[in-house]
Simulated scan of single mutants.
Amino acid sequence: MKASPEAQRRLLDLQAVDTALAQLAHRRKSLPELAEIDTVSRELSALEDERVRAQVAVDDIERDITRFEKDIEQVRQRKDRDQKRLDGGGALREIEGLQHELTTLNRRQSELEDAELELMEQKETAEATLTEVKARLAAAATRREEAERRRDEAMSDITKETEFKNASRGPLSADLPADLVALYDKIRTESGLGAALFRSGRCGGCRIELYGADLNRVKSAAPDDVVRCEECRRIMVRTAESGL
């Protein structure tokens, strides 16, 4: 293939733009915020599970307390009825029976109240745990929001820079011979780098130094010959910097 030395030199400008675009694409995929968001999201998921368990513990205790309160209220109502009957007098056996039942009810009420008090203490502990989990959940959510904000800002910057590079690539590519660009794009698609400067006897693509016949091939090539590296097959652009 033939192409003017100037067209080949400008191929390096095109490669510089494409390299920048590739770097931008890599930056987009490897932003540290993406990994941070993923980590915090997993943390949020685990914390939400923890919050649910803590909430269930509080709800279970509250349900037990409600049940004890009902039991205690039933005992009180029964005590009131027995006390009224006792105050109304009656046969000795009936009075003794009421007194015995009142004693039993007082003991039952005391046991229920002690159990309710213990549950209330457990509820305080469970609520403290729930509050602490909610605080960690809120803090993690804030961290994720902040990471998402930074990600969006970085993505916006990358998008703007990508659009700028693409805008400059179009005219640059259009001004070059179509067959040269086609060859360059084919090589770049396969290896990531389509053209590189040949300098100091070394291919700028694979960094291999040429000797003997290989070096003579490059030196003896006409200025408008499109020379490719025998090793990596990339276009080796010769300029004043090549030292030939």
Rank of each mutant, 00 (worst) to 15 (best):
C229N: 11
A138L: 08
E148K: 06
K123R: 15
R188T: 11
C206M: 01
A139M: 01
Y211H: 13
A213K: 15
A154Y: 04
R169G: 00
T129C: 00
R136M: 07
R143T: 10
V218R: 10
A196V: 09
A154V: 01
E161D: 06
D157V: 09
Y184A: 09
S156H: 12
F164Y: 11
E148A: 08
P223R: 03
P177V: 06
K186H: 05
E124I: 14
T159D: 12
E145P: 01
L180T: 06
K123G: 02
D225I: 02
R143A: 03
T142G: 06
G192M: 04
L117Y: 02
E116V: 10
E153R: 04
I158D: 00
G204F: 01
D225K: 08
K165S: 08
A222Y: 05
G212R: 03
P177T: 06
R151Y: 01
G212L: 05
L176I: 02
T159M: 02
F198C: 07
N216W: 13
V227H: 08
E209A: 05
A221F: 08
D175N: 12
L215F: 04
A147M: 03
A140R: 08
A147H: 02
R207T: 12
E145V: 06
R199K: 14
E153F: 03
G170E: 11
L130T: 00
A167L: 03
P177W: 01
L172F: 08
R233H: 15
L117F: 04
Q122R: 12
L215Q: 08
G170P: 01
R143E: 08
R217A: 09
G204T: 03
R233P: 10
Q122N: 05
Y184E: 09
R150N: 15
C203L: 04
T142V: 04
P177L: 10
G192D: 05
K123Y: 09
K219P: 11
R136H: 12
Q122A: 04
E148G: 10
D157M: 05
A213E: 15
A154G: 01
M155Y: 02
T162S: 10
C203E: 03
D179A: 14
D225T: 13
